[in-house]
Every structure is written in C-alpha cells, then in structure tokens.
Amino acid sequence: MAENNHDNDIAEIKNLIRGESKAVADLEGVFDDSFEKVVDMVSSAQTVLTTAVGNSGAIASRMAHVLALCGAPAFYLNSDLALHGSVGAVKSGDVIIAVSKGGVTDEVNDFVKLSLDAGAKVVAVTQSPESPLANMATMVQALPHTDADPEGYIGMGTSLAQAAWGDALALAIHLRRGENAKDIASRHPAGLVGKLSRSV
C-alpha cells in the first residue's frame, strides 16, 4: 500500500475550503429583482414548506428552521415521505421551496407537481435553471455552479451555497417584518439563546 502523502491531503483540504468560500461569495449576483419576488411570495404564504432529499434535504431542513426563527411559518417536508401521504398537507396559498442541485430528482419533482396541482406556488433553488424542476416552478433561483464538490458528486460547496441562500431569505424576512432581538428571543426560549435572551 502506498504511503499516504499528508502534505498533499492538507493542500487539497485547503483548496476545498477556498472553493467553498468562493461558492458562497459567488451568490452575491443572485440577489436581484427575482429574489425580491421570492421574498414577496414567502412573506405572503400561509405556510412555507421546504423540501428535498439527500444532502439537499439536510440543508432544506435547516432552511425551514432558520425561516421559522425569523417569523416565517416554515416546515420541512422530505419529498420521499410526502409521496406516501404527507402531500395531503399542501394547500392553495402555500409556498414550496424545492432544493435540488441538478433539478432531476424524481421524488422532488413528483412532489412539486402534486403541490402545484394542489394550488401551491413553488420556488426552485437549483444550479440547473433548464432542468425539469426549474421548468415546473413558479420562480427559479439559479445558484452558480461550483467546483467545490469533491469528485463532482460530494455536494460540499453546493450545500454551503444552498444554506447561505436560505440564510439570505430568512434575513430578508426578518428585516421586512421589522423585528428585533426580543422577537427572535420569544421563539427561542431554550438553550444558550434562551438564557442570553432573558437579559434582553
């Protein structure tokens, strides 16, 4: 077995971190009029459901949490589970935020189609604006491609960019609602935030 060259490993790791930083920084160009329309849509939604599977699913789950913390009525619904009955929760007036790097994941796209049929609006967050998901969506947020996914398949840079986009949306909701630290503290009574908020 060849001896592992740790110096090369560290160099590759550092290169990954630089690439991930760029993946997030490259998002700046996304925040234009179309993003403002997404903020409008989410702000007026009865319920916001984030959805995805796999690595994007972990990001979509976090996105729902941060949106809820900032005052949006947001929940995460795994696209797999939605196809086994949970899609019945989707109704007219809801907004679905579907996260998918390639926009071709069958479970996500099937759920999106059913949600549209139920009268919901869909925001596609994807690197593939010509994908089936994007073509179905009410609004598309096309994230820049990144080289910071090792082997092209391990969605590391992609995940960070998706998460940062979700953070930007949550901040936009927070700013639009004109809230302050007390409002956030009221939704986060436990843990360190809860302890610190008692002095706010």
Rank of each mutant, 00 (worst) to 15 (best):
A148N: 11
K22M: 10
K101V: 05
G103C: 13
I97M: 15
D26T: 11
V24S: 04
L160T: 12
G19P: 09
I59L: 09
S92I: 04
M41R: 11
P189S: 04
C70P: 00
V104S: 15
A163D: 02
T105I: 08
N8H: 06
A168P: 00
L116Y: 10
L192A: 10
G152Q: 12
E36L: 14
D106S: 14
L81Y: 13
L27Q: 08
V108N: 03
S43Y: 07
M63V: 14
S199A: 07
M63Q: 02
S34L: 07
V48D: 02
L196D: 02
H6E: 08
L175E: 13
D40G: 05
H6L: 14
L114W: 01
P132Y: 07
V24Q: 10
I17F: 09
K113T: 09
V38H: 06
I10P: 02
Q127V: 00
F75C: 06
A23F: 03
G93W: 07
M139G: 00
I59V: 15
L67R: 04
D147P: 01
V24L: 03
F31S: 03
G155A: 13
E107T: 15
A74P: 10
G71Y: 04
Y153N: 08
L160H: 05
V200C: 10
A11S: 12
S159K: 03
K91V: 06
A168D: 03
G191V: 14
L83Q: 10
V104D: 15
A64M: 05
Q141R: 14
S115W: 04
T126V: 05
D7P: 00
R62I: 03
T138M: 03
G88D: 08
